[in-house]
């Protein structure tokens, strides 16, 4: 087990190192931030001064060395635009994105599980067929289009919900959250629904398959023979057992929702991390882009590492094969 642990950590570190090189090179190959940052009227001297201050006049390898040295000390650089620590600027946006991902997650469960169960109980009925074919739409319609249509319908035509922004926030333990204000919740609903649509289609599919499988199990048959009401069978026995794969998949999807809500956040001008990423790319704020991507890599590596560790702990076969090989 210890050997396996050391090997996996070593692999993770290698992945982070390789990604650092790739991300840094890719981001630093694009454009010249000085041309974007400086006022158009700036003279050549002013431009040179900016380049020197940002360290852009040094050779690429030197810039990379400085970046790595600072990163090892937990400093992922200073934003060109805000001249604050890149990590601080990103983490400032984290609550907004987490909140969006969380509400989207709840929505996808609330939408996906009941529909999936209904479709699973009567796979050949009209309801089941309709649900399953509609869920294909949820998969295939592009995110930004759904967002725009929702804005058009609920914000522009009906004027029930606001079209953009985050709305009022309240501080909960020092973290500004909009979930607990009416105004904030109304701002959250459309982007969260947009983000949830794809996930709920996924949940429908998994829940449907799970329900069909569970319904054929002996314990369901026995429960029925025992005379339990269909309601109790579904609510207790089926639901409990088919939720396991749903939870597993959603856990993994949560990571991608936090890291890649970029499109949804842009369409709704939602001030989360994804929008920060897009804005920073446009402004060539390289430290923010690099820090964001490194943070994402780090999160995913950690998640994978933890999952692997858990597998090893749960499943002796993994341990044994690793010990041998």
């Amino acid at each position: 087990m210890l050997v396996y642990l050391i090997r996996r950590i070593g692999q993770s570190l290698l992945v982070i190192a390789v990604m650092a090189v790739l991300v840094f090179l890719a981001v630093y190959a694009v454009g010249d931030p000085v041309a974007i940052l400086a006022n158009p009227e700036a003279t050549q001297q002013e431009l040179d001064a900016i380049a020197a201050r940002l360290g852009l006049d040094r050779p690429l390898w030197e810039q990379f060395a400085i970046f790595v040295w600072n990163a090892l000390q937990g400093d992922l650089g200073t934003s060109f635009v805000y001249s604050e620590s890149a990590l601080t600027v990103i983490l400032e946006r984290l609550p907004a994105t987490m909140e969006l991902a969380f509400v989207a997650l709840v929505l996808s469960i609330l939408i996906g599980v009941p529909l999936g169960v209904i479709a699973g109980l009567k796979p050949d009925g009209l309801a089941g067929r309709t649900i399953m074919s509609t869920s294909i739409l949820g998969f295939s319609l592009p995110n930004f289009w759904i967002g725009l249509m929702l804005i058009l319908l609920f914000a522009v035509e009906l004027q029930w919900l606001p079209a953009s922004g985050r709305g009022d926030t309240v501080d909960v333990l020092g973290v500004p959250l909009s979930m607990f204000t009416l105004d904030g919740l109304s701002h959250l609903l459309l982007p969260a629904f947009t983000l949830a649509l794809y996930k709920s289609s996924l949940v429908i599919r998994i829940a449907q398959a799970g329900t069909r499988e569970v319904m054929l199990q002996d314990y369901v048959r026995f429960a029925r023979a025992k005379g339990l009401s269909p309601r109790r069978i579904v609510m207790v026995h089926v639901l409990k057992n088919m939720m396991i794969p749903v939870v597993t998949v959603l856990g993994l999807e949560l990571g991608s929702m936090i890291a890649f809500a970029v499109v949804t956040e842009t369409v709704f001008s939602y001030p989360g991390m994804g929008k920060l990423l897009i804005d920073s790319i446009n402004r060539l704020d390289r430290p923010i882009v690099v820090a964001y991507l490194m943070l994402t890599v780090f999160i995913f590596v950690i998640i994978n590492l933890v999952v692997d560790m858990l597998y090893a702990a749960i499943d002796p076969r993994v341990r044994l094969s690793e010990a041998k090989g």
């Binding site: 804005i151 004027q159 606001p162 953009s164 922004g165 001008s269």
Partner: peptide
């Protein structure tokens, strides 16, 4: 999004 925000009254 800007036009939508105007049309929506935001």
């Amino acid at each position: 999004a800007r036009v939508a925000a105007l049309l929506a009254g935001d």
